[in-house]
Computed example of a mutant assay.
Amino acid sequence: MDNEREPVRVVIVDDDQLVRMALRLVLDGEPDLTVVGEAADGDAAITVVDEQRPDVVLMDVRMPGRDGLSATRELLTRPAPPGVLMLTTFDSDDLVLGALRAGALGFVLKDTPPSRIAEAVRTVADGNPALSPAATARVIAAATGPHSAEARSPARDAARKRLSTLTERELDTARAIADGLGNPEIAQRLHISIATVKAHTGNIFAKLAVDNRVQIALLVRDAEQ
């Protein structure tokens, strides 16, 4: 990162004080990150975020009172909202999936090594998705494997209708994004320039009315159910 760049401002939201303390120690120990506030539930998180205007919110999924999903949905309606990085355990796939659909930029497991949590915060601060590899498969499974075909049908039909607005090349790009490829890898797969990939991606964002690449990936997964 640029040494002259201001530190990334972070708010930590978790109902467990020990978790908040541990995360603060990790993040404040990084020269380019600084914790500017903490909250123990969703309502307090919204208040702290409005006061501190952080770049990134580390948001626990399950909390007493207002949970992380509800708080995330509200925060992401704000003008110039912070990037939201969800903190989760393996038993909260459905809530994490809902948060990603709402616009959260990613999620990390609570037992992720501290250095990777710090790197995920940096990634989200730059506007890019940060998905824990170990949990990504679980969330994709939750997105593509509801309990019945009847339950899948409405989401599949809606996703296919939205994707039908894309050109063939834009759809190829969207599928590559869903496979987790970055722009250089997409350019190589489709035999096009990186500039063209960026142009296709911009068109996809506009046509699908999405905020990030995670939402593109989830739409593609829904359409392919």
Score class of each variant (00 low, 15 high):
Ile192Asp: 03
Leu85Gln: 09
Ile140Pro: 03
Arg24Leu: 06
Arg62Ala: 06
Thr167Arg: 05
Asn3Gly: 07
Ala118Gly: 02
Arg62Gly: 00
Leu69Glu: 08
Val13Ile: 08
Ile192Val: 11
Arg156Asp: 10
Ser132Asn: 15
Arg156Ser: 15
His191Phe: 02
Ile12His: 03
Leu33Asp: 08
Glu224Pro: 01
Arg101Gln: 13
Pro146Cys: 08
Leu58Gly: 02
Gln225Pro: 00
Gln215Pro: 01
Ala187Asp: 01
Gly180His: 10
Arg24Glu: 14
Leu218Tyr: 09
Ile140Cys: 07
Ala141Ile: 01
Asp60Ser: 00
Glu51Val: 12
Thr72Gly: 01
Ala44Arg: 13
Leu218Cys: 12
Ser70Asp: 10
Leu97Lys: 09
Gly145Ile: 09
Glu224Asn: 11
Asp222Ser: 07
Val36Leu: 11
Arg5Trp: 04
Met21Tyr: 01
Met1Asn: 04
Ser132Phe: 14
Leu33Val: 07
Ala22Thr: 09
Leu69Ile: 15
Arg156Ala: 15
Thr165Tyr: 01
Leu97Arg: 10
His200Glu: 15
Glu4Met: 13
Leu33Tyr: 12
Leu100Gln: 04
Ala22Leu: 09
Thr88Phe: 03
Asp111Leu: 05
Thr136Ala: 14
Phe90Arg: 10
Asn183Tyr: 09
Gly106Thr: 11
Glu170Trp: 07
Asn128Glu: 15
Leu163Lys: 00
Arg73Asp: 05
Ser153Glu: 12
Arg24Asn: 08
Arg73Ile: 11
Thr47Leu: 14
Ile192Phe: 05
Val19Trp: 00
Arg213Ser: 10
Val197Ala: 04
Glu150Leu: 12
Asn128Ala: 15
Val108Gly: 08
Leu105Glu: 08
Gln188Asn: 14
Gln188Asp: 13
Ala199Ser: 15
Arg20Phe: 01
